[in-house]
């Protein structure tokens, strides 16, 4: 229903309908030009080009993606991080926990390409073994946020009404607490402080990360639910809920995928920040955040012990953000033909 705030002004049509408009005739002579037919051949109206290969939206996006250098680089780096996180022993034969104070702050030497920390641990090996915790936090936080925030946002957007109003206020409340601030409060609760693990960090980050995803999904669902094809399928007899699952959600996925990819990176940063503040992962878990935190005291004497894990962290995060950017461009409806 569109409501027009200001109705059209209709002028009193005195005589307008009595005058028969008969067209204008120029006093000048106007040449009647006809283009030669061979130069302007007439094509059949609206024919189907049967030569082109059929393409779904996803296959089109994939075609456009795989040609982008940004995508190739970031996808390669992310694959590498995943393999490292899954099989760290393939990349380093040095035990990251076998630290000898004799090696304290030693520089690089054969077998130890990046030198040693203050405690005499091998920096390279710690980076390799630290990937797992950082990556898992990012991955599981994103999964929880997408599932929970996505479901909440989709239901709120699709059904609207009081459900939407309540969920919107709930989202606002969580928004009023910045992620780090909220995480600090939760992480120092006795229940969390005494049982710190990868999971407490994941739960905390997810608790303050879901409203953003809910908002994005809600917006996308509201846009999709008004489409004619949803009305058409309802008119075909599809139930309201099935229409949500079959039509609305698949058409709302693009922004969710993009934001999820980028968020995965930012959650890794958030974990590192919490660890840096001493309230993230427990010290016995090897992670980039913990290593950076430990190295900060040595910044002036041995900056490399801080730089290397920071570099690993930054490149990983950058890969996810770049991947998200590339996917966004590929899925952009404006860039697609249609």
């Amino acid at each position: 229903m569109s409501e027009n705030p200001t109705p059209e002004i209709i002028e009193p049509s005195d005589g307008a309908r009595n005058t028969r408009r008969t067209g204008k005739v120029s006093s000048r002579t106007i040449e009647h030009y006809v283009a030669p037919l061979e130069e302007t051949p007439l094509l059949a109206v609206d024919f189907v080009d049967e030569t082109a290969e059929p393409q779904s939206m996803w296959s089109q996006a994939w075609r456009s993606l795989r040609k982008r250098p940004l995508f190739i680089i970031s996808a390669f780096l992310i694959l590498l991080v995943i393999v490292v996180a899954a099989f760290p022993q393939l990349f380093s034969h040095v035990d990251p926990t076998a630290c000898r104070l004799d090696d304290s702050s030693e520089t690089a030497r054969a077998g130890h390409p990046l030198g040693f920390t203050l405690q005499g641990c091998d920096v390279y090996s710690r980076i390799i073994y630290g990937a797992r915790a950082s990556f898992l936090v990012g991955l599981f936080t994103t999964i929880i946020v997408v599932v929970f925030g996505g479901v909440v946002g989709a239901l709120a957007g699709y059904y609207g009404g009081w459900l939407d109003a309540v969920l919107a206020r709930l989202g606002d409340i969580f928004f009023a607490l910045p992620l780090i601030l909220g995480a600090i409060i939760v992480m120092q609760l006795p229940a969390f402080r005494d049982n710190r693990s990868v999971w407490t960090v994941i739960i905390t980050l997810a608790a303050f990360g879901w409203p953003q995803m809910a908002r994005i999904t809600r917006g996308a669902v509201i846009e999709a639910r008004g489409a004619d094809f949803v009305t058409a399928s309802r008119a075909l007899g599809l139930s309201k809920f099935r229409a949500l699952v079959n039509h609305v959600i698949p058409n709302s996925l693009s922004p969710v995928i993009v934001i999820a990819t980028i968020s995965l990176g930012t959650y890794i940063v958030a974990e590192a920040t919490l660890s840096f503040l001493g309230i993230g992962l427990p010290p016995e878990i090897m992670s980039w955040g913990n290593d950076i935190s430990n190295a900060q005291t040595q910044l002036r004497n041995n900056p490399e012990t801080l730089m290397w894990p920071a570099l690993a962290l930054s490149i990983t995060v950058l890969s996810f953000i770049m991947l998200g950017d590339a996917v966004r461009d590929a899925l952009d409806p404006k860039a697609r033909k249609g």
Partner: peptide, 22 residues
């Protein structure tokens, strides 16, 4: 801008403190 977003604030802080400050 992507790099700035990717590098954690505290790392940026340390690096700038170290280079610009020290």
């Amino acid at each position: 801008s992507l790099i700035v977003i990717a590098v954690p604030t505290f790392v940026l802080g340390f690096v700038l403190q170290f280079f610009v400050g020290v």
